[in-house]
Structures are given as C-alpha cells and as structure tokens.
Amino acid sequence: MFAVLKTGGKQYKVQAGDVLRIEKLAANAGDKIQFNDILMVGGESVTVGVPFVAGAAVQAEVIAQIKGEKTIHFVKRRRKHSSQRTKGHRQHLTLVRVTDVLASGAESSGVAAATGTADARRTAHNAAAAPAAEAPAKPKRAAKAAEAVAE
C-alpha cells in the first residue's frame, strides 16, 4: 500500500519502510508522528482525495534532525568595481522513517500530528499572547480626559 502525502510545501509518494528527508518538523529523534494531509491512497484500490482523503494518515518515526548540503549563492557584477558577494545556506531537515500507511482510522490512532517549526512557533506565540488579550484594556487617555473635563 502506498500514499501521497503533503508536507513542507512538497508532495511525497511513500510506503512502509521508506526514509524521507523533509522540511524541519517540531519533533525530537525517536518521536512518533502522523501526517494527516494525504492526497491519495493506493493499493488494491486507489482513493484520490478532494483535496485530502478523509480518515487517512501516514505514521512515521523521527530518526534525526539534520542539515542539508551547503548551497553557495555567488553574485558578481562585472565592471562595477569588482562588486561580488558569496553567501552559503544549509537547510534544516528532518529524517523520518515511514512505519505505517492508514487508509482509515487516523483519528483514533493516538499519534501526535506532524507540525512544522513555523506552525509550532506560531501556536506558541498565540498561546503566550492569549492571556494578555483577555485582560481588559485600561484606557489611560480616556481617564485623563474625563478628569480634565470634570475639573
């Protein structure tokens, strides 16, 4: 059985036992994660999602957090007083091994959903900002204006 999953803005065709290098996820080595954005499940019969297959999931185990190979970005402007710049970049990646492809029953599996680092940062930021938003705002200017009018 195989599945086509979507993570990190890319699509991967996977089956049990595959090892993938994907965009960094908010998980530690040894964690079990579950991908819920399944575009297609195949095997004896093929199921194509609209856009996702309901109840389908791919479970995986995080092997390690790694960095990709270095890419060099070199810019040179000819005849501009030797203007040149070199920048390097190594992408943060997560190495995962697919353990199981579920055609149905993903909700009751009990495995945590895979989230990217940007999603994890966004939810942590929103959780930290939520108590401040619930506190009633004290209008300082309005109180001062009311005192000035009363006098």
Rank of each mutant, 00 (worst) to 15 (best):
147 E>C: 11
89 H>L: 09
35 F>K: 01
11 Q>P: 11
33 I>G: 14
116 G>L: 04
15 Q>F: 00
130 A>D: 13
41 V>D: 02
126 N>D: 12
108 S>L: 02
147 E>H: 08
54 A>L: 06
49 G>Y: 06
148 A>H: 15
21 R>H: 04
146 A>S: 15
49 G>W: 08
120 A>M: 12
69 E>F: 03
132 A>P: 00
55 G>I: 00
144 K>C: 14
113 A>H: 02
30 G>E: 13
93 L>S: 05
75 V>T: 09
77 R>P: 04
87 K>T: 13
19 V>T: 02
132 A>C: 02
26 A>T: 13
13 K>T: 08
28 N>P: 14
65 Q>H: 14
3 A>V: 00
2 F>N: 14
100 D>R: 11
126 N>W: 05
64 A>F: 10
1 M>H: 10
97 R>C: 08
65 Q>N: 15
31 D>M: 12
145 A>F: 12
6 K>E: 10
122 R>N: 12
2 F>Q: 07
123 T>G: 09
135 A>I: 06
19 V>E: 01
67 K>F: 11
145 A>L: 12
97 R>A: 04
13 K>P: 14
132 A>I: 01
89 H>I: 05
67 K>Q: 07
68 G>T: 03
134 E>M: 00
116 G>W: 03
33 I>Y: 07
104 S>P: 09
80 K>E: 08
64 A>S: 14
55 G>H: 04
113 A>F: 02
36 N>E: 09
19 V>Y: 00
110 G>R: 08
16 A>T: 15
117 T>S: 15
133 A>P: 09
84 Q>S: 03
117 T>P: 15
111 V>E: 11
12 Y>F: 01
114 A>P: 12
11 Q>L: 04
98 V>E: 04
15 Q>C: 05
117 T>Y: 15
115 T>E: 13
90 R>W: 00
96 V>A: 02
136 P>A: 01
72 I>S: 08
40 M>Q: 04
78 R>W: 06
36 N>Y: 03
125 H>F: 13
91 Q>M: 12
51 P>T: 03
92 H>K: 11
12 Y>L: 00
113 A>L: 00
3 A>Y: 02
68 G>E: 01
47 T>F: 05
149 V>N: 10
87 K>Q: 09
69 E>H: 10
14 V>I: 01
77 R>V: 09
98 V>C: 11
66 I>W: 00
119 D>L: 08
29 A>Y: 11
33 I>D: 08
52 F>N: 10
130 A>H: 15
42 G>W: 00
81 H>W: 07
101 V>E: 14
59 Q>Y: 05
129 A>G: 13
101 V>K: 11
48 V>F: 07
1 M>Q: 07
14 V>W: 00
149 V>H: 09
33 I>Q: 11
76 K>S: 07
61 E>N: 15
127 A>V: 13
12 Y>T: 00
78 R>L: 07
100 D>Y: 06
16 A>L: 10
133 A>T: 12
9 G>R: 03
86 T>N: 11
127 A>I: 06
70 K>W: 02
92 H>L: 12
138 K>E: 15
81 H>P: 09
63 I>W: 12
30 G>F: 10
12 Y>P: 01
5 L>I: 09
99 T>G: 10
60 A>D: 11
43 G>N: 08
18 D>T: 02
55 G>M: 02
68 G>Y: 04
10 K>Q: 04
83 S>G: 09
50 V>T: 13
143 A>C: 12
